[in-house]
């Protein structure tokens, strides 16, 4: 028995079916506890005041903004090599989720930056790289939408995703390089720099909650894609008969 058995759409549906509800439940419970803890039970930061509460959603969203693309790249690579539709569909299902987390990271970052840095936006290396990431997601989704044949769309967007992951690394490096001269003293307060104990536990809770939420919504979206694909092929069979 190998793990490729799960790449069979029917098998994938059968195995993931009992997982969906518990995942939603676990994500909801952890999110509720994490939110309560981070909003109501943490003190204000001595420098940041109550805006520190924004970081409890900003940090997990930013982590997922990057990691979702990694999930898509792995799924695209596996899809291209092993020719599994489920892999392509997982990559397709992940893209809007990644775009949403990227948007959240950008918006919460801007709202945090205004009171803390006195500006909504700085051309900091990290911020700029996340903004570029957002356009990678947009392009990937636009390609899926533009190619009519699903089989072609799957392969082409997988190629784009893999080329994109290489250039995402290059862009990150280039942007780091670019930010060193334009910005003498970096305003960036590195999130991981120094997290006080009082903030650490709720932050970890929120990170786990966001990841559970991601897995839950990714599963549902992938199952949706598989069903839509099955419905489409049944319709085509019908039309041919």
């Amino acid at each position: 028995m190998s793990i490729w058995r799960y790449a069979n759409p029917a098998e994938f549906m059968r195995i993931t079916d009992p997982l969906v509800a518990p995942l939603w439940g676990a994500a909801a419970v952890l999110l509720a506890v994490g939110l309560w803890w981070s909003v109501a039970l943490t003190p204000d930061d001595y420098q940041q005041g109550s805006t520190v509460k924004i970081l409890f959603i900003h940090v997990p969203a930013a982590m997922l903004a990057i990691n979702t693309y990694a999930v898509m790249a792995v799924a695209s690579g596996v899809g291209l090599i092993r020719r599994h539709h489920v892999s392509f569909l997982v990559a397709k299902a992940a893209a809007p989720v990644g775009a949403a987390f990227t948007a959240i990271a950008l918006i919460t970052g801007a709202v945090w930056g205004q009171p803390m840095w006195g500006t909504w936006w700085v051309w900091d290396a990290r911020l700029t790289a996340v903004l570029i990431m957002f356009f990678f997601y947009l392009g990937y989704m636009a390609l899926w939408a533009a190619v009519e044949e699903p089989e072609k769309a799957a392969d082409l967007s997988a190629v784009l995703c893999l080329v994109g992951v290489v250039f995402a690394f290059l862009s990150r490096y280039a942007v780091n390089f670019w930010a060193t001269l334009h910005q003498g003293a970096s305003l960036s307060v590195a999130e991981g720099q120094r997290v006080d104990d009082a903030f650490r536990t709720p932050l970890y809770l929120m990170i786990v909650a966001f990841y559970l939420f991601f897995v839950a919504i990714l599963l549902v979206r992938a199952r949706t894609e598989i069903r839509a694909r099955r419905a489409r092929s049944l319709r085509l069979q019908e039309a041919r008969a």
């Binding site: 947009l138 636009a142 080329v163 994109g164 250039f167 862009s171 490096y173 280039a174």
Partner: peptide, 10 residues
């Protein structure tokens, strides 16, 4: 253009 411009950044 939306596919290629981000790749041109480096």
């Amino acid at each position: 253009s939306i596919l290629v411009l981000p790749l041109y950044i480096p």
